[in-house]
Design a protein around this nucleic acid. Structure first.
Lengths: 120, 120
DNA sequence: CTTGCCTCTGACGTCAACGTGAGGTTTTAG
DNA sequence: CTAAAACCTCACGTTGACGTCAGAGGCAAG
């Protein structure tokens, strides 16, 4: 699969895929003429990368994880890293839940005043 | 309270507080000589701003919310905006939960191989 | 009164995750 | 064989939330 097809199938831009290679998150093979060639499972790897980005992980944190996503093999250090990132994600979740609840009580409190004008 | 004390009490930098003013998230009074003077409740407002930033809201989304946080009064449009942001936060939460679960199964699957070497 | 710390206003720098051309090559369709 | 579409490598631009430095003014203590 060439870069355009992978982009179409994952919904990310061609530029983003080249950026992932630059960050060594997803390094494709090359044809003799230099064109990138991705294997079938690259689709899943791109989706994984997107999810990790969405979880707030920077490239630097994703990079050491990805080579093992494919192989299924792992060192104890990497395992610890995975658990650490998982803890950070859970903290983010808790944080978001608290903010959501805060917004909730704001909305409830505000509803009392429905119809009044917000000074600005 | 002057800017240095507010920074110390909230843990955000002086630069950040000036930035919040630039974005009109927290506009202080001024002494005749031009120094910023914040009221006591600015501490809570700064924390609220931080929570909303942490929830992924940009300044533009926070700005129309803040003047009403203080007053407790609100327009129907603002109420809708609050609910919209709340929905977006819930989507982010769901996304994070899914990513956490994915990490979880990765960790479980990887634990099987504990002791093997990760090719690099 | 001056020393030292805090504050002020610009204004340029940073970092991440790409966007957006420029200018040239490769692959594919007819 | 040719033209269009896809691809390549630089390399500069963008956005958001600040960091950082320069140069100048304000203020309590000794």
């Amino acid at each position: 699969m060439r870069i355009g097809e992978l982009a179409a199938r994952t919904g990310v831009s061609v530029r983003a895929l080249r950026y992932y290679e630059e960050q060594r998150l997803l390094v494709p093979e090359r044809t003799p003429s230099g064109q990138r060639v991705y294997p079938e499972n690259a689709v899943d790897r791109v989706r994984m990368i997107q999810h990790l980005y969405a979880a707030g992980l920077p490239s630097r944190s994703i990079e050491p994880i990805m080579p093992c996503v494919a192989s299924g093999e792992v060192t104890p250090e990497l395992l610890e890293r995975l658990r650490a990132e998982q803890r950070r994600i859970e903290e983010r979740i808790d944080d978001l839940v608290r903010t959501r609840d805060r917004l909730d009580s704001m909305i409830n409190a505000a509803s009392v005043y429905e119809g009044r004008t917000c000074p600005r």
